[in-house]
Amino acid sequence: MLLGRTAASLFWMARYMERAENMARLIEVSYRISLMPKPFRAHQDDWSSTLKSAHCETTFAEKYDVASQANVIQHLVLDRENPSSIRCCMETARNNGRAVRTALSRDVWESLNATWNELATLRVNQLSSDKLPGFLDWIKQRSMLFRGAMLGTALRQDSFHFCQAGAFVERADNTARILDVKYHILLPRGSGPGSSIDRQQWASLLRSVSAHRAYRWAYRDASYQPWNVAQFLILNPAMPRSLLYCYDWISNKTLAEIEREYDETLPCHETACETTWLLKNANMEKIFQDGLHEFLSDFIARNNRLTSEIASAYNFP
């Protein structure tokens, strides 16, 4: 038996851990670009597009005027008023975990709690730019430790599947958003292989989903082909952050397991299967023809709908 509130807390705990990790990666990439010589920093508004990918433009605009590097990093890493800052994500994940401690294995709880304890010692201004890469690395490691503890110790029952649902819904949302913000560099153009600046952008895009090496193994083209990059992140079934992979996992592993365990089919199951089916039957040519942005916007809306359907199906408070 699982309380609706417990299921909700598990879902959001995993979601916020995933978000913290994605945020760390996103900032890492922007920071890397800011170190490049000027011509490679394609646009002046690199940090603005980071805010956009992180979906934090609104909260940022409430506090700051200029999207300077310092401001953006402050807002995305440590700002207590930004619910998606790394600090807040970690805190929300830990508070959700604390509220449902009895549903967590000791290893999972300890990984969450140790991260939070260490983060609490960090003062607002302590993160000088030379410390930033190390910090972001640490966040990624803590997220991976959490995931590992979960995979290694959690009983494979409803509670585990709610965590997985949260993590994969968040991951799919993240991949779709990053693609959507950067879609202009992916738009196929007539003029042959892209410039070195475009290449740089593609590489960063792949890096921000931890996939630039994987891309090389998956596609043997020496340069980045927009089709391939987009295909890799949307439709490649082997890429663990692609939309198809995430949805295949959500509908066939996570939600399907809960459906089996409870012996009840609900609207969320239908939505998940439908989205998976759409992805499985999509092809890149058609997606580009109809518009990548439209495709991704539709996906993000579907993904949001899934969250609210899961919440109402399982009595989240």
Binding site: L2, L3, G4, R5, R101, T102, D158, Y262, P317
Partner: peptide
């Protein structure tokens, strides 16, 4: 204590009264 006793830890939101009995909201 909830963990050690193997019973649910609930907040007020998790409980409700229906038809004269007390219930908890679960995923089922």
């Amino acid at each position: 204590l909830a963990d050690e006793m193997g019973i649910q830890l609930v907040t007020g939101d998790d409980l409700f009264v229906n038809d004269g009995w007390l219930y908890m909201r679960t995923t089922q």
